[in-house]
Amino acid sequence: MARASLTSALCYRDPKAALKWLEAAFDFELVMLIEDADGNLAHSEMKFGDSLVMIGTEWTDQHRSPASIDGLNTQTVHIKVEGDVDAHCQRARAAGAEILMEPADQFYGDRTYRCRDLEGHFWTVGAAVKAVSREEAEAASGLKIQGWM
């Protein structure tokens, strides 16, 4: 599999639990796992579509799971799905995701929802449901938009 130019690496207190959770909630598939002599997770990668995420530990003093810093996040990962966002949301909810925003149509043509995982990472999930031009998006949002694709 060709590697995308950007890959997110997320920190978890219990990354092995996260691997199971992310498979159950988001249908991510484990493609690499490295454990040290004590059985601790040293590195792992999960695949979804044409992308990877790396799931790791709090491996330095500067790497923390939201679970260790009062739920704060400094970035979020967006999942682009093909198909039914509402079904995706139901699956995530069944796996224990806290749904922060129920699926809703957005002015830019996607239907999205937002949730929080087992350690407090925020995830947004969306699928394109309607073709929207830049002019339509600007009119609907009141924003000036550059770089519309």
């Binding site: 598939e29 493609v31 690499m32 796992l33 490295i34 454990e35 002599a37």
Partner: peptide
């Protein structure tokens, strides 16, 4: 045997 390398893919 605890030290482990795991890789997977679909065919």
């Amino acid at each position: 045997m605890s030290s482990k390398v795991l890789v997977a893919l679909r065919i």
